[in-house]
Simulated assay, not measured.
Amino acid sequence: MTYIVNDACISCKYTDCVEVCPVDCFYEGENMLVIHPDECIDCGVCEPECPADAIRPDTEPDAEKWVEFNRKYSEIWPVIITKKDPLPDAEKRDGEEGKLEKYFSEAPGEGG
C-alpha cells in the first residue's frame, strides 16, 4: 500500500505533511503536492496532518487513477521537504468540488 494526494489539495497546498514525512516523498507543483508511490513507505504519518483531507490510502475506491497521477507528477516536479504557507485562497477553496478541472496546473513548484 501507498498513500496518494488527490484533487482536494489543488489550490490549497497545505504543506504540514512534508515536515513529518520520514522519506521525503512529496513533490511540489505550482498549486498542489503529490507523493511518489514508489518512495512512500506506508507509514501513514502524513495523512492526519493534511487539513484538506487530500492524503488518502491507495486502497480506497478510485485511488488507482490517483496513484498514476501522483507517479507522473512526482517524476517531473521538485521534491519538497520544508513547510511553506498555504496558497492565498486555501481556506476558500478547501472542500470545493471539481478542482482538477477548474484549477490544476502542471507547472512545477519551487521545491525545497
Rank of each mutant, 00 (worst) to 15 (best):
residue 79 V to I: 11
residue 52 A to R: 10
residue 75 E to H: 13
residue 105 S to H: 08
residue 17 C to P: 00
residue 106 E to W: 12
residue 21 C to W: 06
residue 111 G to L: 03
residue 1 M to L: 13
residue 24 D to T: 14
residue 80 I to L: 14
residue 25 C to N: 06
residue 45 V to H: 09
residue 94 D to E: 13
residue 37 P to C: 11
residue 104 F to T: 07
residue 44 G to H: 06
residue 25 C to R: 00
residue 19 E to S: 14
residue 3 Y to D: 05
residue 5 V to I: 14
residue 18 V to F: 01
residue 46 C to M: 07
residue 23 V to Q: 07
residue 58 D to R: 03
residue 75 E to T: 09
residue 67 V to P: 11
residue 94 D to I: 11
residue 69 F to C: 05
residue 92 K to P: 00
residue 27 Y to T: 04
residue 83 K to M: 04
residue 103 Y to F: 14
residue 79 V to H: 00
residue 35 I to V: 13
residue 23 V to C: 07
residue 78 P to G: 05
residue 2 T to G: 05
residue 69 F to T: 11
residue 19 E to F: 08
residue 31 N to P: 08
residue 101 E to M: 06
residue 59 T to D: 12
residue 83 K to Y: 00
residue 92 K to Q: 12
residue 37 P to R: 09
residue 65 K to Q: 15
residue 52 A to D: 08
residue 86 P to D: 05
residue 98 G to E: 04
residue 34 V to W: 06
residue 39 E to R: 13
residue 9 C to K: 01
residue 79 V to R: 12
residue 37 P to M: 11
residue 96 E to W: 04
residue 54 A to K: 07
residue 93 R to N: 15
residue 107 A to E: 13
residue 78 P to C: 03
residue 9 C to V: 00
residue 87 L to D: 09
residue 68 E to N: 14
residue 63 A to C: 01
residue 3 Y to A: 07
residue 38 D to Y: 13
residue 35 I to S: 04
residue 70 N to T: 11
residue 111 G to R: 02
residue 75 E to I: 03
residue 61 P to A: 12
residue 18 V to D: 04
residue 25 C to P: 05
residue 27 Y to W: 11
residue 36 H to E: 14
residue 58 D to E: 10
